[in-house]
Simulated scan of single mutants.
Amino acid sequence: MPATRKPKAPQKCATCKGSGEVSKTVRVGRKRRTVGQQTGLCLTCFGSGEAT
């Protein structure tokens, strides 16, 4: 009887650390004043949180 192997868990994406979202600083005005952060979809893993 062959030994069954457990499938490996997928590795987390290094860019978003597995969350699927990344934060970007939002700047406005001529002097590029920082007003906050906005979250968006991670383009490395397309929001799945798994490394390819």
Rank of each mutant, 00 (worst) to 15 (best):
M1C: 04
M1L: 09
A3K: 08
A3C: 01
T4V: 09
T4E: 02
R5K: 01
R5G: 00
K6I: 07
P7W: 11
K8T: 11
A9P: 00
P10L: 13
P10E: 09
P10S: 14
P10Q: 12
P10F: 12
P10H: 07
Q11D: 08
Q11A: 15
Q11T: 07
Q11S: 14
K12T: 11
K12W: 01
C13A: 04
C13L: 08
C13K: 05
A14I: 13
A14G: 14
A14C: 12
A14W: 08
T15N: 14
T15G: 03
C16S: 04
K17F: 04
K17R: 12
G18P: 14
G18N: 09
S19G: 11
S19P: 13
S19H: 09
E21S: 06
E21M: 10
V22A: 03
V22L: 02
S23L: 12
S23T: 03
S23W: 06
K24F: 01
K24T: 08
T25C: 07
T25F: 09
V26W: 00
R27D: 03
R27G: 04
R27V: 13
R27W: 00
V28G: 00
G29C: 09
G29V: 06
G29I: 10
R30W: 00
K31F: 00
K31N: 13
R33P: 02
R33G: 02
R33A: 11
T34G: 13
V35I: 15
V35Q: 11
V35N: 11
G36M: 10
Q37R: 15
Q37G: 13
Q37V: 14
Q38L: 14
Q38N: 13
Q38I: 14
T39H: 02
G40Y: 00
G40T: 11
L41N: 05
L41R: 05
C42E: 07
C42V: 03
C42K: 05
L43N: 06
T44R: 15
T44Q: 15
C45D: 11
F46E: 14
F46T: 11
F46G: 13
G47K: 04
G47Y: 06
S48P: 12
S48H: 07
G49W: 04
G49I: 01
E50I: 08
A51T: 07
T52R: 15
T52I: 02
